[in-house]
Structures are given as C-alpha cells and as structure tokens.
Amino acid sequence: MIDIDEEEPKFVRIEIEGLNAEKWYQLRTKFIRAIHKTLDTVIDHEHSSTLRDEAKKFTTELLNYGKAKLQRAGLENEELMAQVDLLYSQKEKELAEARKLHAEAEALEIRNNIRKLKLGIGGMKALMIGETGKEEILFLKQMDHFLEILRDFEGDNNVRLQG
C-alpha cells in the first residue's frame, strides 16, 4: 500500500488503450460492453443504488476537479507508477510465453481469467462513469471512504459557493 496522508486523497489515473489502433477503434465499444457486463456481476447489489446514484452524482465533478490540479509526481508516486508498468509488462510477457507453449489450453485459460477477473475485483467496487466514447472506470475498496471524499468535496464546494 502506498503511504499517503489520509487527509489528502489522491487517485492514480491510468490511461489504457489497445495496442493496435485500428483494432482498438473497432473493438472499443464492445470492450466497454464486456467490462460493463463483468462489473455488473461483481457489484454489491445490496448497495448498488448507493454506489451508482450517490457516487455517480459527484464523481465526474470530483475527477474534473482533480484533473484541473494534476499533481506533479513525487518520488514515491513515480515509484508506484514504475512498479505498475513493470508488473503489468511482466504479466503480459508471461502470458504470451505461456500461450506459445500451451496454445491448446488457451480457451481454458481464458475462462479461468474471467473467473479471476470476477474474483479479483469481487472485493472491490468498480464504477463506470463518463459519456459514451469517453468512459472512465473508478476502482475502490472501501466505498465509505470514497463517499467521505465526495461529501468533503461537496461540502467544500458549497462553502466556496456561499463564500
């Protein structure tokens, strides 16, 4: 876990896209639908209304606020981003090698990966926001913590508006 002051909430933003631009253009919408489907299966239905309605209400605004004052990455942050990059590259490389060796087991592997994806983010909350074509996904572990951030943000904005 990153050692970050709880009083100063920070979000890591990672932009992903397909390796091949043409394929990415063709498959992006389908990919979003696939993520939607997967996220729908892992969302906590008991609290889904809270997650969707309350969070969506302010998340876009909050993220826009954060984007407006993008922080220059400190040494600690740079380390995290370098680690993410390295770990992701390693995983992709391992998978490519495994596929070469066990091409016939690919279908099974894909099914396992779907299970892993469901289990992997099962303990988390994921929220799809943004307009069509500009989708963004928010990953959270503790919804309460995020709602606190949102409430603080909302309250702070109200104060500023009243002031």
């Binding site: 920070k10 992903i16 397909g18 498959l27 990919f31 922080q71 603080d152």
Partner: peptide
C-alpha cells in the same frame, strides 16, 4: 485479457498520473 477475449490484441498503458483530490 478481457480485451483479448473479444478479439483484441493487448492493452497498453498510455499514460499514468496522479489526481490530487484534496480541497
């Protein structure tokens, strides 16, 4: 992996940065 399942090649990280959400 999900992207590959639907016929894509692989995802690449285009950019990474930090959003400071403190008031």
């Amino acid at each position: 992996d999900t992207y590959r399942i639907i016929g894509g090649d692989a995802l690449v990280i285009k950019k990474m940065d930090y959003l400071d959400l403190s008031p």
